[in-house]
């Protein structure tokens, strides 16, 4: 079984890594490498902050591009053009298909993010070297790496969401759109909740809306939990409790999504 899953992971990875969009991603990565070195110099004091902002944001952005272009096009092809037949004609159970596919996308994501991270970390190093005094006092590369790991976990949730939505819909495109929508909701969820709880004294907000938003909070992944960009950029200590909460939340969410999609795929037909 493991052998089968790994073989599927392997071709998914291969298919992804040879895709043209990967080239585009690496091209943008090189541009951001340059941006990391140049852009912060437009600022007066917080050069380190801007540098890390650009580095972490570009890692996130490129990860998102990878998911919404490469991964989703591979998945759409599977469903729309029936490349899934070559997998399902083998003794794969549907659950093995999902897990293999997930691992394939995940390894692709980790691989690409690792390369981009190395590139941008070199950029940050260069920037750090020339502007040591403009970096926050307590800036640590350890926390910087931790933030990257959290970005990877957030992307892992998005991949799981993509697979989950593809099990609900018959078109790959719809799954992509739904995933995009839940990214948008998931990443702004915390801020919406903040706004509502802050403004509740001055402006009265309908109780119904609060109820709906609380419901949404449990359904959609709260992706801002995984955002440690500001803390790292300013050398604010990341509380280990936040990290553990986010980590466990992510793992549970992924497991839940994967097992749900396994169940749904069991009943899915590919005419």
């Amino acid at each position: 079984m493991l052998y089968r899953i790994l073989s599927l992971q392997n071709i998914t990875f291969k298919e992804g890594i040879k895709d043209k969009s990967i080239l585009a991603i690496f091209f943008i990565a090189i541009l951001t490498f340059i941006a990391i070195i140049i852009f912060p110099n437009l600022f007066a004091r917080d050069i380190g902050k801007v540098c890390i902002d650009v580095a972490l944001s570009s890692i996130t952005l490129l990860g998102l591009i990878l998911i919404f272009f490469t991964c989703s096009s591979i998945l759409s092809k599977d469903v729309d053009k029936k490349t899934i037949y070559i997998v399902l004609a083998r003794p794969f159970s549907r659950a093995e298909y999902i897990i293999g596919k997930y691992l394939g996308f995940l390894s692709l994501e980790v691989f690409v993010i690792t390369i981009i991270s190395v590139l941008s970390t070199v950029g940050v190093f260069i920037c750090y070297h020339y502007n040591i005094h403009y970096f926050p006092k307590h800036f640590s590369f350890y926390e910087y790496l931790l933030a990257i790991l959290m970005i990877i976990e957030m992307l892992a949730i998005l991949i799981a969401l993509l697979l989950f939505f593809s099990s609900l819909t018959t078109q790959g495109f719809t799954a992509t759109i739904l995933t995009l929508a839940s990214y948008i909701i998931g990443s702004s969820l915390n801020d919406v909740l903040d706004t509502i709880s802050n403004s509740s004294d001055s402006i009265k907000i309908n109780k119904g809306i609060i109820y709906v938003i609380n419901l949404v909070k449990y359904i959609f992944p709260n992706l801002s939990l995984f955002d440690f960009k500001l803390e790292v950029a300013h050398g604010v200590k990341i509380s280990s409790q936040n990290i553990t909460t986010a980590f466990l939340y992510g793992i549970i969410y992924i497991l839940l999504l994967i097992s749900l999609s396994c169940l749904l795929y069991k009943r899915k037909e590919f005419p």
């Binding site: 071709i11 291969k14 298919e15 040879k18 591979i74 092809k77 490349t83 004609a89």
Partner: peptide, 12 residues
Amino acid sequence: YLPENPYFYDQL
């Protein structure tokens, strides 16, 4: 199994 319209992963 050979599908009716064989279509495989492009990049492989």
